[in-house]
Amino acid sequence: MAGTNGGVKTLGIKVPDALHAQFTLVAQLDNISLGDAALRAVELYVNTKKAEPDFAARAQAALEAIEREAAARRGGLEGLFGDATPAAENAEADDKGQARRRGASSK
Rank of each mutant, 00 (worst) to 15 (best):
K49L: 06
A51P: 14
A41L: 15
F55S: 05
S106E: 14
G97T: 09
V42H: 09
A62N: 12
I32R: 01
H20R: 12
G12S: 03
E67Y: 13
G82A: 06
L19A: 09
I13V: 08
T4A: 10
T4Q: 03
S33W: 09
L25I: 02
E78Y: 03
L63Y: 07
N90F: 07
E89F: 02
D83H: 11
A87F: 10
E69Y: 10
A65V: 00
A2V: 11
P16Y: 12
Q28M: 11
D94N: 11
E43F: 06
Q22C: 02
L77A: 01
D36V: 11
R100K: 14
L34P: 03
V26I: 15
R40K: 09
I32V: 07
I32E: 03
L29N: 02
N5Y: 13
R100M: 14
P53T: 07
R73K: 11
G35H: 08
V42P: 05
N5G: 10
A56Q: 09
T24E: 08
L11V: 15
E43I: 10
P16F: 12
A37S: 05
G12C: 01
P16T: 11
F81W: 07
D54I: 04
G76R: 06
R58T: 12
A51T: 12
R74I: 04
G12L: 00
L80T: 02
Q98E: 05
F23L: 15
D30S: 04
G3H: 10
A93R: 14
F81R: 02
N47T: 14
V8A: 06
E69T: 15
I13W: 01
A70K: 14
H20Q: 05
G7Q: 06
N5L: 13
D17R: 07
L63M: 05
N90I: 03
A2E: 10
F81C: 00
A2K: 09
L80P: 01
Q28D: 14
A70N: 13
N5A: 15
E92R: 14
Q28R: 12
Q22K: 03
R102I: 11
N90S: 02
G3T: 10
A37K: 06
A99S: 10
L25W: 08
G103H: 15
L39M: 10
G6Y: 08
A57F: 06
G76M: 04
A27W: 07
I13N: 01
D30H: 11
L80R: 05
A72C: 00
R58A: 13
L44S: 01
D17G: 08
Q60M: 13
Q60H: 13
A27K: 05
A51W: 14
K14P: 01
G79I: 00
E78D: 01
S33D: 05
M1D: 12
E92H: 03
K14E: 10
E78A: 01
A21G: 05
E78H: 00
A99Q: 09
K96R: 14
P86H: 07
A87C: 02
L29M: 06
G82T: 03
G103L: 15
D54E: 08
G3S: 09
G6A: 11
N90M: 03
A51V: 13
E78G: 00
E64H: 06
A88Y: 07
